[in-house]
């Protein structure tokens, strides 16, 4: 439809643009998918990505200090994301804070940490490798895109072949049964949030590579877009159904749609609203088959 409305939409260049734009969202969505599979929700992506963006930009070669840790700096940023995820998970299982509240809190903490590190002066990165991620291409696609593709693959393997992934499914399907079978679910819940956090951490690094600088708002909007993408792809908010591959498809759909809207000249101001409508419509469509149970939603 967009292809008809705008010839530019069809160009090779635009396809490349779209796929590149999908990279960061795909990584965030991978992480969030695991949390959604458990039937929890994760709103911490924005904060975690901000903190990770600042961390990485201050650890690799930059204009604020003399650090030049390269890959190690990236690793630290990812681990930081992981730690934030742990925090969400622990708040959920130990303090019994509902996941949306716990992760919202963690997001605020992440933004706070990022703002402290930002300290009023924007760190611009000069690390060649990290900058190169966004620019250099392999087989026509940027390195970031390949990283995202790897993440999807890793996510799929996690989901299909590891206890962590399978139990995430099971927790979403029937948590009480796991307890009856003698499985301790709490460690798995925390681990799932930690894995999700690591994905957000990496996403923060990727945004930094794109922008060439560490920004507090690096992740703003990604939390909602990722949930939209996951849901559009067919991952249920009630847990237990869907998966990483579903979500990857969802990411492409969302990106194509957003890009298409831009190409046909819809004002960016409208896009947020459109995205909101999509997520509600997708959720509604997903629950129609279950409607007959007369179920109540909260």
């Amino acid at each position: 439809m967009f292809a008809v409305l705008s010839p530019r939409f069809r160009s090779i260049e635009n396809v490349q643009n779209m796929v590149d734009a999908a990279a960061v969202l795909a990584v965030v969505t991978c992480g969030i998918t695991f949390v959604l599979l458990m039937g929890s929700i994760d709103l911490s992506a924005a904060g975690v990505m901000g903190a990770s963006a600042l961390t990485v930009s201050l650890l690799v070669a930059n204009n604020r200090n003399d650090n030049d840790l390269g890959l190690l700096g990236i690793g630290v940023a990812v681990l930081l994301g992981c730690a934030f995820g742990c925090l969400s998970g622990l708040a959920l299982v130990l303090l019994k804070v509902p996941s949306f509240m716990a992760t919202l809190g963690v997001s605020a903490v992440g933004l706070g940490v990022a703002t402290l590190m930002f300290a009023g002066v924007q760190p611009n990165i000069s690390d060649a490798m990290l900058k190169g991620w966004a620019i250099e291409r392999f087989l026509g696609l940027s390195y970031l895109t390949w990283i995202a593709a790897t993440c999807v693959l890793v996510g799929w393997l996690l989901q299909r072949y590891t206890r962590l992934g399978r139990y995430a499914f099971a927790i979403g399907g029937a948590e009480e049964v796991l307890a009856l079978s003698g499985v301790r679910v709490k460690p798995y819940k925390v681990a799932v949030f930690a894995v999700a956090g690591a994905f957000y951490g990496l996403a923060g690094v990727m945004v930094t590579s794109q922008l060439g600088a560490g920004l507090v708002q690096a992740g703003s909007g990604y939390d909602f877009s990722a949930i939209t993408a996951a849901v559009v792809g067919g991952t249920l908010l009630t847990g237990g159904r869907g998966g990483v591959l579903h979500s990857a498809v969802g990411v492409l759909l969302v990106v194509v749609l957003t890009n298409g809207l831009v190409q046909i000249g819809v004002s960016p101001y409208w896009q947020g609203g459109v995205e909101g409508l999509i997520v509600v419509a997708a959720v509604a469509a997903a629950v129609i088959p279950q409607r007959r149970r007369n179920q109540v939603v909260k």
Partner: peptide, 18 residues
Amino acid sequence: QSLVPNLTAAENILLGGE
């Protein structure tokens, strides 16, 4: 309600003691 509906029969049988 004592099987996890979205797992395979094998996983349910072995759940917690794979």
